[in-house]
Structure formats: C-alpha cells, structure tokens
Simulated assay, not measured.
Amino acid sequence: MYWNFADADACRDWGRRLAQVVDMPAVIYLHGELGAGKTTLAQALLQALGVTPPIKSPTYTLIERYVTRIGTALHLDLYRLREAEELEFIGIRDHLAEPALWLIEWPERGRGFLPPADLSLTLTILPQGDHQVRWRALHARAERWTERLGLPAASLGVGGADG
C-alpha cells in the first residue's frame, strides 16, 4: 500500500496515525533516501506517544531512548555506521533484552545485529517533489495495525523477508 504526502506536515500526520495503532513490542524499519521523511515520521510517532522533550535525530549518537505512554522506545539512525558490528559497541545486546518500540532508520546497515522487523516503511521522494510511504507488514502484529487503520491487508505485501 502506498500513500503520497505533499509536505512534512502530512508526513507528521501519518506518523501520528501510526502511533494510534502500534503496540509493544514492535520493530519498525524506516527505509529511504536522505530527506525522504524517515526522521520526521519517527519524531511525529514518538510525540504522539507522549514524548515531550525535544526528539533529536540519532544521526551522531546512533541511538536515542525515550519513555512513551506504551513503554520504552528506541530510535536508531544507522546512516553513519560503517560496519554492522559497530552496534556491539553501543550495547545493542542490552537493548535487545527489553521489550521496546524500535524505530530504525537505515536498517540495512545493521543487518545481522538488529531484531527482525514487524513493519517495513519505505519513504521515497517522487519526481514531482511529493513524498510517498510504502507499508509492508512482516509480522502478524503489523497486520493487526493494518486492520486497525482500516487498510486492505491484501494490498500491503504482507509477509516475506526484508533487509
């Protein structure tokens, strides 16, 4: 399923909508080129879950931890990761032990060290300048989110592997 959005406000609205249906634990992969809206969507989702301090991009820290109304949320931005093994140095194993909402930008750079995705979102900048998000449920819990949002599951590419 694809949605087009014209600007950052529309992307934030979409993130807030997703926050209404997501539950814990959950892993959401955020794919897309620079500037496609991954961080904007993650920030809106976290704000909608009750995070009030400023939500900074984890571009340099790699991971930011937040307390939300549904529990712990971990926002990762792996763009600057040179090798997936670097996740060991930030204590990724410690984070894997606790139930959390994982929002992972550039997940392909952490392959082999990250929990598997429940939902894969791919954000794209279209030629005319609009943005697009593609939703792909990879686990039954993400299929339930699909149902709660009133989306047709058959059109979402449910199942299969994702990088």
Rank of each mutant, 00 (worst) to 15 (best):
M1T: 07
D118M: 05
W3M: 08
G160Q: 07
L119E: 06
L18E: 03
A140W: 05
W106S: 02
H75K: 05
P53N: 07
G159Y: 05
L74V: 09
A19L: 08
G35Q: 10
H139R: 15
P107G: 02
N4T: 09
G37Q: 04
G35A: 10
W102A: 05
L76T: 08
P152L: 12
T40I: 14
A6C: 05
T59F: 14
Q43T: 10
A6V: 02
Q128A: 13
R65C: 03
D130G: 10
V133H: 00
A161M: 10
D9N: 13
M24I: 15
R17M: 14
G32A: 09
K56P: 06
Q20C: 03
A153V: 11
L62K: 04
R80S: 10
Q128W: 02
P54D: 15
R144Q: 13
T72Y: 06
A97T: 12
G15Y: 03
L87A: 14
L156M: 11
D7Q: 07
S155C: 06
P99V: 00
T122C: 06
A8V: 07
R93Q: 12
G112R: 03
A48T: 01
W3V: 11
G50H: 07
A10E: 12
R69E: 13
G91Y: 00
R12P: 00
E108G: 02
C11A: 14
Y29L: 01
H31R: 07
V21R: 10
A84H: 08
L123C: 04
G157A: 05
H75T: 05
G91Q: 04
L81P: 10
G160S: 08
W106M: 00
H139E: 13
P53A: 12
G15D: 05
D77P: 11
D9G: 12
L101N: 02
E85S: 15
T40L: 12
L62H: 10
P127G: 05
T61I: 07
E86A: 11
T39S: 15
A140C: 03
C11L: 14
I104W: 06
V158D: 01
A48R: 03
I55V: 15
G159K: 03
S120K: 02
A84V: 10
V51P: 00
V21S: 11
A8P: 12
L18N: 04
R80H: 06
L78G: 03
L81A: 09
H139C: 06
P152E: 13
R148F: 01
L149N: 00
H139W: 05
L121H: 02
H95K: 04
I90W: 08
P99L: 00
L138C: 14
A140D: 09
K38H: 06
E105F: 10
P107N: 01
T61W: 02
E88Q: 13
G35S: 09
V22F: 08
P127V: 01
G112K: 05
A117Q: 07
T146G: 14
E143S: 10
